[in-house]
């Protein structure tokens, strides 16, 4: 009798051990799975954070290099020299310069006065022709060469603040607008004038980066 009872007890114990062992194992497996899930979520968060930082960095970098026109010492020197260039326009009727032959800068400054040169030609026409010829002689523009085209503009701003008005007094282009080029070099020069602010800008369109 006692032996039978002992056997039953042992059987129950072993059943209990089996049941408890299973649940312990199940509990352990569940814990590991939960921890792994947490790690994955953490990892995803880290990746997300880094991706956001990377995107912000990329955005800032692209904003910095938004303008495709690179400042050029060569163009800057050309504009300096161009402004001092003597034109064929001789005007002795008004003072202001020792030399009766006007420079490009003087003709730009007196653009509003609509002067006529002593040979009968309009000063504005001489100015445009001189600038165009000077640019097209200085660089070779063709689809095969490095220089694909150019844009030259002179803007005159009169007045100040909200009442200021801007007028484009000279605009020359070769093969479309150079501002839309992938690779471009250029520079801007200010022309001294007592009544207005005058800015001359030259952009050269390049077939590839210099």
């Amino acid at each position: 009798m006692k032996a039978r009872q002992q056997k039953r007890r042992e059987g129950r114990d072993s059943e209990n051990a089996l049941i408890f062992g299973d649940s312990v194992r199940k509990c352990k497996t569940l814990g590991v799975a939960k921890r792994a899930q947490e790690e994955m979520v953490g990892f995803m968060l880290v990746i997300l954070l880094v991706a956001i930082i990377f995107l912000i960095f990329l955005g800032l970098a692209s904003m910095r290099s938004k303008s495709n026109v690179r400042e050029s010492a060569e163009v800057s020197q050309f504009l300096d020299a161009l402004m001092e260039l003597t034109t064929d326009c001789r005007i002795t009727s008004f003072s202001g310069s020792v030399n009766p032959y006007k420079t490009v800068e003087e003709l730009i400054r007196d653009y509003d006065r609509d002067l006529t040169c002593e040979n009968g030609e309009k000063a504005r026409d001489v100015l445009t022709r001189t600038i165009q010829e000077a640019i097209e002689t200085s660089w070779v523009f063709s689809p095969e060469s490095l220089y694909q085209g150019y844009t030259f503009e002179v803007d005159q701003t009169t007045g100040s603040g909200a009442s200021s008005t801007q007028e484009r007094i000279v605009e020359l282009t070769w093969q479309g607008n150079a501002f839309s080029c992938t690779h471009a070099i250029g520079d801007t020069k200010s022309v001294f004038s007592a009544s207005s602010t005058i800015k001359a800008r030259l952009i050269l369109c390049l077939s590839r980066s210099e």
Partner: peptide
């Protein structure tokens, strides 16, 4: 480098600056 070359032009009777 671009510069202006200045010389006395006898025909014009004035200093002339050419692009150089």
């Amino acid at each position: 480098a671009f510069v202006d070359l200045v010389f006395w032009d006898k025909n014009k009777g004035a200093y002339v600056k050419v692009l150089g």
